[in-house]
């Protein structure tokens, strides 16, 4: 951590952490909704666990971590969606890939010579150590992911609803599925520093699931998910400071708490909406 005079806001590690978390929350919200709607929660896990393998490869070949994780998560995401469309049992295949790549990644990291790696940081995130450079990568990546799904949103939504319906509207569901796969892989790679490989899927799914109670349209749900994710980041960081708890898990715990409240509020809101 820098000890020079803190003249700008970005020198504060807490501000950087909050901004990094915010960037992730903004993309994890809408993307998490897509994951929930397509019931591909396990897919998120498989991709996230593969990121550890990406870290190992990046260290071994001395390339940047983000490059390594993007490459491997992308490869994993494409493999998984490829297998799925060939009629393999997706559930079991995903289970094998998710845990296999995690284990392989952990073993691979242990073999990387001359590097003492803080494995914890990749498994659970190290949001408090986010640098200005990390922040730039996260926000640039988040902007790219947001732009991609903003552009394709209605098409992706139609394809999720029903492939035949999509085709009849001139949409190729396979292409939309690919867009989703790529953005998901990018999101996972970007989130690694913030919440870590084990909890990336949580950041995708929990805010989205919590947002369901507050939404009557898909767009509203995506927006609310992003906002709840943001709330979880802020509350989690606060909690982490106060209780000296690890930041990543604290953020996910905050998200879970929000989810519980949302689920309890759900029936009340539904009754009010029905009038």
């Amino acid at each position: 951590m820098t000890t020079t005079m803190t003249t700008t806001m970005l020198d504060d590690f807490l501000i950087r952490a909050a901004l990094a978390g915010a960037g992730i929350a903004l993309i994890a919200g809408p993307l998490g909704c897509l994951v929930v709607w397509r019931r591909m929660a396990y897919f998120g896990d498989a991709t996230a666990h593969a990121a550890i393998l990406g870290v190992a490869l990046a260290l071994a070949f001395d390339v940047s971590i983000i490059l390594g994780t993007v490459a491997v998560t992308l490869a994993m995401a494409l493999t998984v969606s490829g297998l799925g469309s060939r009629g393999h049992s997706e559930d079991a295949t995903l289970g094998v890939l998710a845990h296999g790549s995690l284990a392989l990644g952990l073993v691979a990291i242990s073999f990387v010579p001359g590097v003492t790696v803080d494995l914890q940081a990749y498994l659970f995130g190290d949001i408090l150590a986010v640098s200005r450079g990390d922040l730039a990568v996260i926000w640039a990546g988040a902007a790219l992911v947001l732009a991609l799904i903003w552009w394709r949103w209605s098409r992706i939504l139609t394809a999720i609803l029903n492939p035949e319906l999509a085709v009849s509207s001139g949409i190729d569901p396979r292409r939309e599925s690919l867009v989703m796969t790529v953005t998901l892989a990018l999101t996972v790679a970007l989130s690694l520093k913030v919440v870590g490989a084990l909890l990336v899927a949580a950041m995708l799914i929990i805010p989205a699931a919590a947002a369901r109670s507050f939404a009557r349209t898909p767009e509203r749900m995506a927006l609310v998910a992003a906002l709840l994710g943001l709330l979880a980041v802020i509350a989690g960081l606060q909690g982490s400071l106060r209780f000296d708890s690890p930041a990543g898990p604290s953020i996910v715990s905050a998200a879970t708490l929000i989810y519980v409240v949302a689920v309890m509020l759900g029936p009340v809101l539904a009754r009010r909406a029905a009038r």
């Binding site: 709607w37 939504l157 139609t158 319906l165 989205a208 009557r216 349209t217 898909p218 749900m221």
Partner: peptide, 22 residues
């Protein structure tokens, strides 16, 4: 389509559905 199954987690008003994707 036959039996369009909309996931219970996907909120969808009739108006929004009619405007998908156009």
């Amino acid at each position: 389509p036959q039996n369009l199954a909309i996931d219970a987690n996907l909120p969808m008003t009739v108006a929004r559905f009619l405007s998908l994707p156009v």
